[in-house]
Design a protein around this nucleic acid. Structure first.
Lengths: 84, 84
DNA sequence: CTACGATGTCCGTAAATGAGGACACGATCG
DNA sequence: CGATCGTGTCCTCATTTACGGACATCGTAG
Protein backbone atom coordinates (compact mmCIF):
# COMPACT_ATOMS: atom_id res chain seq x y z
CA UNK A 1 0.00 0.00 0.00
CA UNK A 2 0.90 3.62 -0.09
CA UNK A 3 1.80 5.64 2.94
CA UNK A 4 0.61 9.18 3.09
CA UNK A 5 3.96 10.39 4.30
CA UNK A 6 5.00 12.56 1.42
CA UNK A 7 1.65 13.47 -0.01
CA UNK A 8 0.89 12.92 -3.70
CA UNK A 9 0.29 16.61 -3.57
CA UNK A 10 -2.62 18.33 -5.28
CA UNK A 11 -0.78 19.19 -8.47
CA UNK A 12 -2.52 22.05 -10.15
CA UNK A 13 -3.95 21.09 -13.52
CA UNK A 14 -3.11 23.25 -16.50
CA UNK A 15 -5.86 24.60 -18.63
CA UNK A 16 -4.89 24.58 -22.32
CA UNK A 17 -6.67 27.17 -24.40
CA UNK A 18 -3.97 28.25 -26.83
CA UNK A 19 -0.65 27.17 -28.29
CA UNK A 20 0.95 29.53 -25.81
CA UNK A 21 -0.61 27.95 -22.77
CA UNK A 22 0.30 24.52 -24.06
CA UNK A 23 3.88 25.63 -24.39
CA UNK A 24 3.93 27.11 -20.93
CA UNK A 25 2.67 23.85 -19.51
CA UNK A 26 5.28 21.83 -21.34
CA UNK A 27 8.01 24.07 -20.09
CA UNK A 28 6.66 23.93 -16.59
CA UNK A 29 6.62 20.15 -16.49
CA UNK A 30 9.94 19.83 -18.23
CA UNK A 31 11.66 22.02 -15.69
CA UNK A 32 9.87 20.24 -12.91
CA UNK A 33 11.54 17.10 -14.17
CA UNK A 34 14.85 18.86 -14.19
CA UNK A 35 15.35 18.21 -17.88
CA UNK A 36 16.97 20.45 -20.44
CA UNK A 37 15.41 20.90 -23.85
CA UNK A 38 18.25 18.89 -25.29
CA UNK A 39 17.61 15.99 -22.95
CA UNK A 40 13.90 15.97 -23.58
CA UNK A 41 14.56 16.20 -27.29
CA UNK A 42 16.74 13.17 -27.13
CA UNK A 43 14.31 11.15 -25.06
CA UNK A 44 11.45 11.90 -27.38
CA UNK A 45 13.44 11.68 -30.57
CA UNK A 46 12.45 15.22 -31.44
CA UNK A 47 14.45 18.22 -32.46
CA UNK A 48 15.48 20.69 -29.83
CA UNK A 49 14.57 23.55 -32.12
CA UNK A 50 11.10 22.12 -32.29
CA UNK A 51 10.78 21.91 -28.53
CA UNK A 52 11.90 25.46 -28.14
CA UNK A 53 9.28 26.55 -30.62
CA UNK A 54 6.67 24.41 -28.95
CA UNK A 55 7.33 25.92 -25.56
CA UNK A 56 7.01 29.35 -27.07
CA UNK A 57 3.74 28.42 -28.70
CA UNK A 58 5.09 29.04 -32.16
CA UNK A 59 4.63 27.11 -35.35
CA UNK A 60 1.46 25.44 -34.32
CA UNK A 61 -1.28 25.97 -36.83
CA UNK A 62 -2.20 22.42 -36.06
CA UNK A 63 -2.75 22.98 -32.40
CA UNK A 64 -4.78 26.03 -33.14
CA UNK A 65 -7.03 24.07 -35.44
CA UNK A 66 -7.69 21.42 -32.86
CA UNK A 67 -8.29 23.94 -30.12
CA UNK A 68 -10.69 25.75 -32.42
CA UNK A 69 -12.67 22.58 -32.85
CA UNK A 70 -12.75 21.90 -29.14
CA UNK A 71 -13.79 25.43 -28.33
CA UNK A 72 -16.58 25.22 -30.84
CA UNK A 73 -17.77 22.08 -29.13
CA UNK A 74 -17.51 23.59 -25.70
CA UNK A 75 -14.80 21.18 -24.64
CA UNK A 76 -12.00 21.99 -22.26
CA UNK A 77 -8.50 20.57 -22.41
CA UNK A 78 -6.42 20.16 -19.30
CA UNK A 79 -2.99 18.82 -18.51
CA UNK A 80 -1.90 17.50 -15.20
CA UNK A 81 0.81 15.45 -13.68
CA UNK A 82 -0.10 11.82 -13.62
CA UNK A 83 0.35 11.26 -9.91
CA UNK A 84 0.87 7.54 -10.14
CA UNK B 1 -26.24 29.87 -5.14
CA UNK B 2 -27.10 27.10 -7.52
CA UNK B 3 -30.12 24.89 -7.21
CA UNK B 4 -29.61 21.25 -7.86
CA UNK B 5 -32.68 21.00 -10.03
CA UNK B 6 -31.17 19.96 -13.31
CA UNK B 7 -27.81 18.72 -12.27
CA UNK B 8 -24.71 19.97 -14.10
CA UNK B 9 -24.25 16.29 -14.64
CA UNK B 10 -20.98 14.54 -14.03
CA UNK B 11 -19.77 14.58 -17.63
CA UNK B 12 -17.15 11.94 -18.01
CA UNK B 13 -13.77 13.39 -18.90
CA UNK B 14 -11.94 11.91 -21.85
CA UNK B 15 -8.43 10.75 -21.43
CA UNK B 16 -6.32 11.57 -24.48
CA UNK B 17 -3.35 9.29 -24.97
CA UNK B 18 -3.23 8.92 -28.74
CA UNK B 19 -4.41 10.52 -31.96
CA UNK B 20 -7.11 7.89 -32.00
CA UNK B 21 -8.50 8.73 -28.60
CA UNK B 22 -8.44 12.40 -29.46
CA UNK B 23 -10.45 11.69 -32.56
CA UNK B 24 -12.93 9.57 -30.67
CA UNK B 25 -13.46 12.38 -28.20
CA UNK B 26 -14.01 14.93 -30.93
CA UNK B 27 -16.54 12.71 -32.60
CA UNK B 28 -18.28 12.07 -29.33
CA UNK B 29 -18.65 15.73 -28.53
CA UNK B 30 -19.59 16.66 -32.06
CA UNK B 31 -22.41 14.17 -32.12
CA UNK B 32 -23.46 15.21 -28.69
CA UNK B 33 -23.94 18.66 -30.14
CA UNK B 34 -25.92 17.20 -32.97
CA UNK B 35 -23.58 18.60 -35.58
CA UNK B 36 -22.54 17.03 -38.86
CA UNK B 37 -18.92 17.14 -39.92
CA UNK B 38 -19.90 19.64 -42.57
CA UNK B 39 -21.49 21.96 -40.04
CA UNK B 40 -18.58 21.78 -37.67
CA UNK B 41 -16.23 22.36 -40.57
CA UNK B 42 -18.09 25.48 -41.52
CA UNK B 43 -18.21 26.83 -37.98
CA UNK B 44 -14.52 26.31 -37.48
CA UNK B 45 -13.46 27.34 -40.93
CA UNK B 46 -11.83 23.98 -41.44
CA UNK B 47 -12.11 21.40 -44.15
CA UNK B 48 -14.53 18.54 -43.72
CA UNK B 49 -11.94 16.13 -45.05
CA UNK B 50 -9.66 17.27 -42.29
CA UNK B 51 -12.28 16.71 -39.61
CA UNK B 52 -12.97 13.25 -40.91
CA UNK B 53 -9.29 12.44 -40.71
CA UNK B 54 -9.02 14.00 -37.28
CA UNK B 55 -11.86 11.91 -35.92
CA UNK B 56 -10.24 8.81 -37.29
CA UNK B 57 -6.99 9.69 -35.61
CA UNK B 58 -5.22 9.48 -38.95
CA UNK B 59 -1.73 9.47 -37.65
CA UNK B 60 -1.23 13.15 -37.36
CA UNK B 61 2.45 13.40 -36.75
CA UNK B 62 1.95 16.62 -34.88
CA UNK B 63 -0.34 15.24 -32.27
CA UNK B 64 1.84 12.23 -31.82
CA UNK B 65 4.84 14.43 -31.19
CA UNK B 66 3.10 16.43 -28.55
CA UNK B 67 1.67 13.39 -26.86
CA UNK B 68 5.09 11.85 -26.88
CA UNK B 69 6.47 14.85 -25.04
CA UNK B 70 3.69 14.79 -22.50
CA UNK B 71 4.06 11.08 -21.89
CA UNK B 72 7.76 11.51 -21.38
CA UNK B 73 7.02 14.15 -18.79
CA UNK B 74 4.42 12.06 -17.08
CA UNK B 75 1.64 14.45 -17.94
CA UNK B 76 -1.91 13.45 -18.66
CA UNK B 77 -4.24 15.19 -21.08
CA UNK B 78 -7.96 15.18 -20.58
CA UNK B 79 -10.93 16.63 -22.39
CA UNK B 80 -14.24 17.38 -20.83
CA UNK B 81 -17.34 19.32 -21.50
CA UNK B 82 -17.10 22.79 -20.10
CA UNK B 83 -20.22 22.68 -17.95
CA UNK B 84 -20.73 26.40 -17.84
C1' DC C 1 38.22 36.26 -17.13
C1' DT C 2 37.29 31.69 -19.31
C1' DA C 3 34.64 27.60 -20.13
C1' DC C 4 30.45 25.51 -20.42
C1' DG C 5 25.53 24.54 -20.32
C1' DA C 6 20.98 26.12 -21.66
C1' DT C 7 18.22 28.43 -24.76
C1' DG C 8 16.66 31.52 -28.60
C1' DT C 9 16.87 31.92 -33.31
C1' DC C 10 18.04 31.78 -38.26
C1' DC C 11 18.63 29.01 -42.66
C1' DG C 12 17.92 25.64 -46.27
C1' DT C 13 15.78 21.43 -47.34
C1' DA C 14 12.75 17.65 -47.33
C1' DA C 15 8.67 15.89 -45.70
C1' DA C 16 4.09 16.33 -43.76
C1' DT C 17 -0.39 17.95 -44.28
C1' DG C 18 -4.65 20.80 -44.92
C1' DA C 19 -7.63 22.71 -48.58
C1' DG C 20 -10.85 21.80 -52.26
C1' DG C 21 -13.19 19.13 -55.25
C1' DA C 22 -15.07 14.79 -56.51
C1' DC C 23 -17.03 10.25 -56.14
C1' DA C 24 -18.96 6.07 -53.71
C1' DC C 25 -21.76 4.00 -50.40
C1' DG C 26 -25.26 3.27 -46.97
C1' DA C 27 -29.28 4.90 -44.60
C1' DT C 28 -33.45 7.39 -44.53
C1' DC C 29 -37.37 9.64 -46.37
C1' DG C 30 -41.23 10.52 -49.41
C1' DC D 1 -37.61 3.86 -56.84
C1' DG D 2 -35.35 8.52 -56.73
C1' DA D 3 -33.53 12.28 -53.81
C1' DT D 4 -30.91 13.68 -49.99
C1' DC D 5 -27.73 13.51 -46.21
C1' DG D 6 -23.65 12.08 -43.67
C1' DT D 7 -19.38 10.23 -44.11
C1' DG D 8 -15.19 7.83 -45.95
C1' DT D 9 -11.73 8.32 -49.18
C1' DC D 10 -8.77 9.66 -53.10
C1' DC D 11 -6.12 13.29 -55.74
C1' DT D 12 -3.49 17.33 -56.55
C1' DC D 13 -1.53 21.47 -55.16
C1' DA D 14 0.21 24.97 -52.16
C1' DT D 15 1.61 25.77 -47.72
C1' DT D 16 3.32 24.60 -43.36
C1' DT D 17 6.61 22.71 -40.59
C1' DA D 18 10.09 19.72 -38.44
C1' DC D 19 14.89 18.58 -38.97
C1' DG D 20 19.89 19.57 -38.66
C1' DG D 21 23.38 22.51 -38.12
C1' DA D 22 25.20 26.81 -36.68
C1' DC D 23 25.77 30.95 -34.11
C1' DA D 24 24.71 34.48 -30.35
C1' DT D 25 23.51 35.47 -25.73
C1' DC D 26 23.24 34.82 -20.89
C1' DG D 27 24.27 32.98 -16.47
C1' DT D 28 27.16 30.43 -13.62
C1' DA D 29 30.87 27.67 -12.03
C1' DG D 30 36.09 27.49 -11.85
Amino acid sequence: MRTRSDRPQKLAPFRVYSPGSLGAAVRHYRQQEGLSQAELAERTGLNRTYLSALEHGRETEQVKRILRVLRQLGVRMTLEKADW
